[in-house]
């Protein structure tokens, strides 16, 4: 759906490039995760793809054509959930949605969506009287109001309680099932694990790693089992490779002869991969 090639971008105010030669593709029907440390340029990349920032170099294609060749109808099929809630505060949720809905050819059933995210009963309340999480949920509904084909979501579950985050994630999954494409930015690796087909990790204005979640886990994966056991009166710890565990003599001896206190298998989490790939530990 989107093809990004050698994308480089600098904010006029800044000295250095924020994005420095980024190349990736978003395939139709996939949930693509754009990840990386705070300030690395995820939101900036999203803003370039939705034509908010123009003065970039490199190439951005949508359905094979340069995004610059699209007019305002580009937005008919695009839904954007910004990082910060954007609403008319003195209008009610319903008034906000109705105003924006009229700008599009296709409309989603926003009453249904409001019910799903638990805002229906508050639909006639002014947005200024909403809590942070309520504004966030309304932001999400707003992104869907034109029945988009592609959704840009910048930290959609940010500030939501677990129950509402669950609902939002479910809606994203349903959106994908119906053939929708999603570009998702988030800091929550559990969300990535659950939602994303492929992810790109950004570091220092570049893409440090890009692959399916599964492949990344295999690539960076360490599969281990940690055992704590009693050796006479002292507590000992040992770590074994999960591969060929059944042939590991030492491991077998321990579980046969010692009293096991705890035993945990450990797979590399996306958190670990994140830290490793983006090198945030180096920068602190």
């Amino acid at each position: 759906m989107f093809g990004v090639k050698n994308l480089t971008f600098k904010y006029p105010k800044n000295k250095q490039n924020t994005i420095n030669g980024v190349t990736f593709k978003i395939k139709e029907g996939e949930v693509f995760g754009l990840l990386g440390p705070s300030g690395v340029g995820k939101s900036t990349t999203q803003k370039i793809l939705i034509k908010l920032l123009h003065k970039y170099s490199g190439e951005v294609l949508y359905k094979g054509d340069d995004i610059k060749s699209y007019g305002k109808n580009f937005y008919q099929e695009i839904g954007v959930g910004f990082e910060m809630p954007v609403h008319f505060s003195k209008l009610t949720a319903n008034e906000n949605l109705n105003f924006f809905k009229k700008l599009y050819k296709a409309n989603a059933n926003t009453d249904y969506l409001l019910k799903r995210v638990g805002l229906y009963d508050d639909r006639n309340k002014k947005v200024s009287d909403y809590s942070k999480g309520m504004k966030g949920r309304l932001n999400f509904v707003r992104a869907l109001l034109n029945n988009p084909k592609i959704l840009f979501l910048d930290e959609p579950t940010n500030g939501l309680d677990p129950k509402n985050a669950r609902i939002v994630k479910d809606i994203i999954k349903e959106f994908k099932q119906k053939g929708g494409t999603v570009l998702l930015t988030t800091h929550l690796m559990n969300d990535v694990d659950e939602l994303c087909d492929r992810v790109a990790f950004m570091a220092d204005g570049k893409i440090a790693e890009i692959d399916t979640v599964k492949n990344l886990k295999v690539k960076y994966g360490q599969r281990k089992v940690d055992i704590e056991y009693k050796n006479h009166e002292t507590l000992e710890k040992e770590s074994f490779d999960l591969n060929h565990l059944g042939m590991n003599e030492k491991f077998l001896r321990i579980i046969k002869t010692k009293e096991i206190i705890t035993m945990h298998s450990k797979e590399t989490s996306l958190d670990d991969i994140f830290i490793k790939v983006t090198g945030v530990e180096k920068h602190g």
Partner: peptide
């Protein structure tokens, strides 16, 4: 209220 940004990604 961030509305200008929103309008800029609407088909207007």
């Amino acid at each position: 209220e961030g509305i200008i940004k929103t309008l800029m990604v609407s088909p207007i």
